[in-house]
Write a protein that binds this DNA or RNA. Structure first.
Lengths: 157, 157
DNA sequence: ACAGATTTGTTACATTTGTGACCATTGATT
DNA sequence: AATCAATGGTCACAAATGTAACAAATCTGT
């Protein structure tokens, strides 16, 4: 009788499956920081990211934010609207391209960014202390390497 | 005149902010593997995760899956229901605790797991080839370290 | 200058997710 | 045994997200 059992040539190892392990680690970290912007400010992750990018880099367009923050344009659009309602963000027309709006933080928005940015920096420092400085540097390097590897042309797998 | 400008003592550095960089890297990787289970099988991430865990570890309860896969119990509940509708999963009562159901893959479910597991393994291998073997090992170690660091008691930041 | 393609951003709709309430069962205390 | 707390799982509702369609503006090539 022939061997009709299903037995794939290479066996799948969940423990070393990068998409899973990376997601798990990153979610654990994200969740633990979420308390700051969500519970204290009632912000979503998208809103916090847009705030952080505008605070960090100054005036940008929605598309630029989306690219820098890896956020889909609808997420950016909604986050911008929310931040605008809070009066943390304002829009200005671009003379050269009337499709575009130059987004920037208002005075209130800059204050909010200052407070949240300080909290974020403090969180990051505490986490870095637990990990060790060398590990943090390695993580950043590997994050870069992963993004490059994935964004490279050519099918994976 | 006094310095009334807002200038926090430590300035926030987005490039080295771990929650952001980790999420960015992990999402890039997750998205690139999503094509396999989503476009080819019409599965959500939760469904794929539950399938992978049952295929990898055999029969488990919903709570056990949730813990092992870092999935909220409602996500597990819904994924289990979907997989059951596909006849890839079946439930059996637990004699000792009638609240609990022992979940396991059906024959079809095992076949699906074989196919998807092979694809996953192949994807992982291709990504590992681009990264280099040493880096992969480091990523896994750091993922462990991050999860431990975050799950440790005591407020971060 | 013009037609068609592309880009920017918003909106509507469907799907997915988070939250809290809930029931049934089990465990702990007395 | 009786009570009360804790656990496993499901459901309904609200919130967030993905998808596709869209209008307005710009760019391209002729």
């Amino acid at each position: 009788m022939s061997d009709s059992q299903i037995q794939p040539p290479l066996h799948f190892d969940l423990e070393n499956f990068l998409p899973f392990r990376l997601h798990q680690a990153s979610e654990a970290v994200s969740q633990s920081f979420r308390a700051v912007y969500r519970d204290e400010y009632g912000m979503t992750r998208s809103e916090w990211r847009v705030l952080a990018h505008l605070g960090q880099y100054g005036a940008m367009t929605a598309t630029e934010i989306g690219h820098a923050a890896s956020l889909h344009k609808t997420k950016v659009s909604r986050a911008v609207y929310s931040l605008e309602k809070r009066r943390w963000l304002s829009r200005a027309p671009d003379q050269r391209d009337r499709r575009v709006q130059i987004l920037s933080l208002t005075k209130s928005g800059q204050h909010a960014y200052s407070r949240l940015g300080a909290r974020a920096q403090s969180y990051n420092q505490a986490l870095a202390d637990r990990l060790g400085k060398d590990r943090v540097a390695t993580i950043i390097q590997l994050a870069d390497a992963l993004q490059r590897a994935v964004e490279n042309p050519g099918r994976l797998g």
